[in-house]
């Protein structure tokens, strides 16, 4: 009960709402694992110092306590005043890396020994320039909505006695598109290899200096008609690719989406204009990164 409330409080306090410079109230500091051993050590030396009336042992104990106090400050300084900025991939794909990039900034280039902990993973990162970024890679296993697990950034510098930490809770949810799955042979005619047929060109236009030599129409050149360039236009190009959910050769919803993904990928790679038709959504023909992301999001959401 109390734990739940604490987690809720953490979520509230550390939810990511945009570029953030870590202030006092955003950095937590407490004794860490072996720090407790150190604490026990302080206690034992204290008792020994008292019992043997040995001022130097007591002094040793006090010095160790003072170092512990300073550790709190130094650990805190590792995180304090760092400016964080998180950039997340707009849409991911099953079994492909989904990147969360944390941009770090500090006023002066002092070394910061940071650890990023997320999803049972732990990665160390030495932040020693004014601006650096750290990439967290997730590999989503499921299509659909994806929420980035809480990211903990902590530092146990200098002696590992004390840990200073902060969280980044990304509250937005992100979408994961299905994994592309190659189509079986019989449905190959839906795809387009993108290899232009060398003789079937649509028209000729005059040669420009940046044109490839391969596409020069040597036939015309041989006839002395001048340098022309063949403008290819294969079958699919003329009619933009329409990828339709209902036509996918599978009965399974997920598999259908995977096939669609495969086709979308191919079109995207060959820069063929394409559109998709889903049971409840439909897009215009389009091409380019924005269009691709839009399509992926639709596939992820359906």
């Amino acid at each position: 009960m109390l734990g739940q409330r604490f987690v809720k409080w953490l979520h509230l306090r550390f939810r990511y709402t945009g570029t953030r410079t870590l202030k006092q109230n955003q950095v937590l500091v407490f004794i860490y694992q072996q720090g407790f051993l150190y604490l026990v050590l302080i206690l034992i030396t204290f008792i020994a110092g008292i019992n043997y009336a040995n001022n130097l042992i007591l002094g040793f104990c006090f010095l160790m306590s003072a170092i512990l106090c300073i550790s709190f400050y130094l650990s805190f300084k590792q995180l304090h005043a760092i400016t964080l900025d998180v950039i997340v991939d707009e849409v991911g794909k099953v079994n492909e890396v989904f990147k969360v990039k944390v941009n770090l900034q500090q006023d002066r280039a002092t070394p910061k020994f940071l650890n990023f902990k997320f999803d049972e993973q732990l990665q160390s990162f030495l932040f020693e320039e004014k601006q650096q970024s750290f990439e967290l890679n997730f590999i989503p296993q499921q299509r659909g909505e994806f929420s980035v697990p809480p990211i903990q950034i902590y530092s146990t510098y200098p002696l590992g006695l004390v840990r200073a930490w902060t969280y980044i809770y990304l509250t937005e949810s992100y979408w994961i598109a299905p994994e592309a799955k190659p189509l079986t042979h019989q449905s190959q005619n839906y795809s387009n290899t993108g290899e232009p047929d060398l003789d079937e060109f649509k028209e000729l236009r005059t040669f420009k200096s940046d044109d490839s030599l391969q596409s020069i129409s040597w036939k015309q050149a041989a006839r002395g008609q001048g340098l022309f360039v063949k403008q290819f236009d294969d079958l699919v190009d003329t009619h933009a690719m329409q990828i339709e959910y209902s036509k996918m050769p599978s009965a399974d919803h997920e598999e259908k989406l995977s096939f669609m993904m495969e086709l979308v990928d191919r079109c995207h790679q060959t820069e063929t204009p394409y559109s998709i038709i889903l049971p409840h959504a439909q897009t215009e023909n389009g091409i380019g990164e924005q269009h691709y992301i839009h399509i992926k999001t639709l596939l992820a959401q359906s």
């Binding site: 007591l58 006090f62 106090c69």
Partner: peptide
Amino acid sequence: FITLALPFFVLLFMFF
């Protein structure tokens, strides 16, 4: 670090 901790140490040593 020890230099930073030193003033605290002196304080503790004298008045604890």
